[in-house]
Design a protein around this nucleic acid. Structure first.
Lengths: 239, 239
DNA sequence: CGTCGCTTTGATTATATTCAACAATGGTGG
DNA sequence: CCACCATTGTTGAATATAATCAAAGCGACG
């Protein structure tokens, strides 16, 4: 039974190029397969972890879709990211040994649980893993800086266009269509992530649709003119 | 001569609690002292590194004050952070082996150059250093999420109040006054960081001054009522 | 002492928010 | 299977907020 849940080793997982370092030898592969202690399923709407919970592990998403976000005492909240298969969540918890955000599944999901002390232990022996962990954290930092750019310097249309392009690009890397996507999150969650109100998100979708750039049918988005979206993102703030 | 420039070892540096892990034994201290290859001085206005440059090292700020920022092809730019003594910069470069931002000194500065391959090597032997590196990266991620919250959910007054409180808190941790500070950056740089125009920054300073919360004399800020600033940050976005 | 970069302030305009009403959708239980 | 409800999404009108444009003031520095 337990065996059943950990049947697929990292070394034979189809997401391994996303989560794992490449170019390992047999010996190293065996070590790295020990990273994943267990699997865990998370139902839609449930949290993988909450702010304040003790940090013990990083999680590699095997299937499903998550949002992470912070909530302040005064009720403000901010979605800090949307994560899909192959991505790693929980990095925020390392510094203070407790999570600083909530991770909530936006659809039924399964994650690989990687105890962080085990990651550190195996990292000392497998150089490629050590470097891989550093790269994952650095990538998250670079991503965050990109979000700052978006929030700090783009107008609503630019933000939403950038958001759609980013999503579709990540989906494409996972073998999905580069023109069709299903949003797993509400307009409000998109708005929280992009620093705008849900009404503005809705209006902006409608405008893109009016302009023939996308077709919107609830959460199904069809990108009709990707170049137009790219042009919207790149329009320099004129005047 | 060379010896002169590396005279102060990390183990006897007065900033060591900020950059380095604590609780090392003698053996470990010796290893960790090998981290810093050289020192480098950076004149006010000069860059420590530029976007696109090959990444080789992390830098610990020994003295001075930096800004980091990204610039896009279309001329948009975003200050992603301001860094002071004891803080580490360059983490963004790990993932693609090249820097993704510019780091510019806002006053004459000196940094400790820590070649990243050496960091990884010593990390494998000194567990406390390994964990310390992970914590530093995680801390940067958490900080970035805080900036997202600020940019995504706060109004101008709230952003500037939060900015001042953050700066003064970090300065205080370094032994400076908790009520007086000298801004090393222009209104435009503050605005870029906070996602607002320089005029709005200026107006907001003036408003705080009118309200008796701070006194502003060019770049000298005197915080007269820290609690008021805290209240401004925490005011829930009413109606 | 004049120039240049930075800052302040005012008036106007652009942009997104807020408030409000209504429509569409999906899930639930009768 | 259908009706109902809660949730989510759309749209309009009024308003708040910050951006833009413009002009003038201040300070540091040569």
């Amino acid at each position: 039974m337990l065996k059943e849940t950990i049947k697929v080793a990292c070394s034979s997982c189809n997401l391994r190029e996303l989560c794992m370092p490449v170019g390992l030898n047999t010996q190293e592969l065996i070590r790295v397969d020990e990273l994943v202690a267990t699997r865990r399923t998370v139902k839609r709407g449930a949290a993988l972890f909450h702010t304040g919970e003790k940090f013990t592990s990083l999680y590699a998403i095997r299937s499903g879709f998550f949002k992470t976000g912070i909530t302040t005492e005064d009720g403000r909240d901010q979605v800090t990211g949307f994560q899909m298969a192959g991505e790693i969540i929980g990095l925020d918890g390392i510094v203070n040994e407790q999570h600083t955000c909530d991770a909530v599944a936006l659809e039924d999901a399964e994650v690989c649980v990687m105890p962080f002390d085990r990651i550190e232990e195996i990292s000392r022996e497998v150089n490629a893993l050590q470097h891989h962990v550093h790269k994952i954290m650095s990538r998250e930092i670079v991503r965050d800086h990109g979000v700052m750019l978006l929030l700090g310097s783009m107008r609503a249309e630019e933000r939403l266009a950038a958001f759609l392009l980013n999503l579709v690009q990540r989906l494409q890397a996972r073998g999905f269509s580069k023109s069709e996507l299903v949003l797993r999150m509400t307009r409000e969650e998109i708005g929280s992530y992009l620093g705008m109100k849900l009404e503005t998100v809705s209006r902006t979708f409608s405008k893109f649709a009016d302009d023939g750039v996308i077709a919107v049918k609830q959460r199904n988005i069809h990108i009709l003119d990707a170049d137009a979206l790219k042009r919207i993102v790149n329009v320099p703030q004129c005047h």
